[in-house]
């Protein structure tokens, strides 16, 4: 029988360090995906994701159980990624506006009939997601893949519920626009 998060946490807090591997295995894909929304580089993402799990382990005693463990863990993901981006702001961060401009440029440049026919729906969605500003891609991922409610996303991203709703709405609208303008034929939208 699979132990729930709270039981595993109790085991770790009682000194069974090896039990922590259960939590890492359970959440590694979610954490890694969320980190990838911020840094589009697998090596860096892996380092950051590892950092997240080490921080979570160190402060595990601070998890009060008021929320789901995943919500608490994703809060660490968010703060770790933001501080990482802040550190290397000058080097790599694209301004969100610039990103959107590049989308509209690429929209005009690429035609649905090009290579897109060979791509699967999954690849198309992944591709479209990469064109969203980090925070919007993060909100969408938390909502659909992370199974977090609007309220929980608010806690993770430090926003009010209504701001999260607006962010999700904008993200979906942008995704719809990107998909319709670039992949409408493949997706039958």
């Amino acid at each position: 029988m699979e132990l729930d998060d709270t039981a595993v946490i109790q085991m770790v807090l009682q000194g069974q360090q090896a039990a922590y591997a259960t939590l890492v295995t359970r959440y590694q894909q979610y954490v890694f995906t969320l980190v990838m929304r911020y840094v589009n580089n697998r090596e860096q993402a892996e380092e950051l994701a590892q950092d997240v799990f080490v921080k979570a382990y160190r402060y595990l005693a601070d998890f009060k159980g008021n929320s789901k463990f995943s919500t608490w863990l994703y809060t660490i993901v968010n703060s770790t990624c933001l501080s990482h981006l802040r550190k290397r702001k000058d080097e790599t961060i694209l301004l969100e506006e610039e990103k959107m401009v590049s989308i509209s440029d690429s929209n005009q440049a690429e035609r649905p009939s090009d290579k897109m026919e060979q791509r699967t729906q999954k690849q198309m969605l992944e591709n479209a997601l990469k064109h969203l500003p980090e925070s919007e891609a993060q909100a969408l991922t938390l909502f659909y893949q992370g199974e977090q409610s609007v309220e929980e996303i608010g806690v993770i991203m430090g926003m009010t519920t209504s701001n999260v709703k607006v962010k999700l709405f904008r993200a979906r609208q942008k995704m719809k626009d990107i998909l319709q303008s670039r992949f409408s034929r493949e997706l039958n939208l």
Partner: peptide, 10 residues
């Protein structure tokens, strides 16, 4: 969105 976006694998 719910079914076609895959999680990344480390």
């Amino acid at each position: 969105f719910s079914t076609n976006v895959e999680l990344e694998q480390p």
